[in-house]
């Protein structure tokens, strides 16, 4: 029963919240969409936390996403031992990087007076949830070898069962506790997304590359006078 709630129902609740509240917030409080950067108040420690954190977590997430979307291709990719080994090692290194970076970021927020003054309770909740997520991730990677491989046969089908609205929680029910925690916490982060500064992830400004440098906005209809 509890498995059903955690892995069959909660993910839907989390995604529904993320979409509904995210859209509501975008429509009615767009002003609140911001990265809330604190670099202005403290720059050095942020460099050692933020840069490794963002690049490493993006790569780790990308691997999760690819293995979920294309399990077959992912399986073939890892078919050769060399590639499997490479992925395993780089995944672990990136995971450790995210852990250290997150600790740096948490320490910075706690230790710097200026930065802690602009930190809200939701910020703390988010930081802790993120730390739990990357720490469990690294623990899983170390304790349960060849995650790149078994993910395809357990987590990926579970996620697909969610996508097809016929949740099959058996895939996760038999998993060890930390995997369950990792999975639930992942959806907790999804649920937290619209209520926190995490919303900045949907505003990655890629359109900048293509746009002209200067922007001009006309307030009046330019008719011939």
């Amino acid at each position: 029963m509890i498995d059903m709630i955690l892995f069959g129902v909660f993910p839907y609740v989390a995604v529904a919240l993320a979409v509904a509240v995210g859209i509501y917030r975008y429509c009615f409080d767009r002003y609140s969409y911001s990265s809330q950067s604190s670099q202005f108040l403290e720059s050095r420690a942020l460099f050692w936390g933020s840069v490794p954190w963002h690049y490493a977590i993006l790569l780790v997430l990308l691997a999760h996403l690819l293995a979920f979307l294309f399990p077959a291709a992912w399986g073939t990719l890892l078919g050769a031992p060399g590639r499997l080994y490479l992925l395993e090692v780089s995944g672990m290194v990136l995971g450790v990087v995210t852990c250290i970076a997150m600790l740096v970021l948490i320490f910075r927020r706690a230790a710097n007076d200026r930065v802690s003054a602009v930190t809200t309770r939701v910020d703390w909740l988010l930081l802790v949830a993120l730390l739990v997520q990357v720490a469990t991730g690294v623990f899983i990677a170390i304790s349960m070898r060849w995650g790149g491989f078994w993910y395809v046969h357990t987590v990926s089908p579970w996620l697909w069962s969610l996508v097809s609205f016929s949740p099959n929680v058996d895939y996760l029910a038999s998993m060890p506790f930390v995997v369950k925690l990792h999975a639930v916490n992942a959806f907790f982060l999804v649920a937290l997304f619209p209520f926190s500064r995490l919303v900045h992830v949907v505003s990655i400004p890629l359109a900048y590359i293509a746009r002209p440098y200067q922007l001009v906005v006309w307030y009046r209809q330019r008719k011939q006078v």
Binding site: S203, P205, Y208, L215, V216, V217, W218, Y219
Partner: peptide
């Protein structure tokens, strides 16, 4: 973000 603009 393209948030800054010049008024025409």
């Amino acid at each position: 973000s393209g948030a800054i603009y010049k008024r025409g």
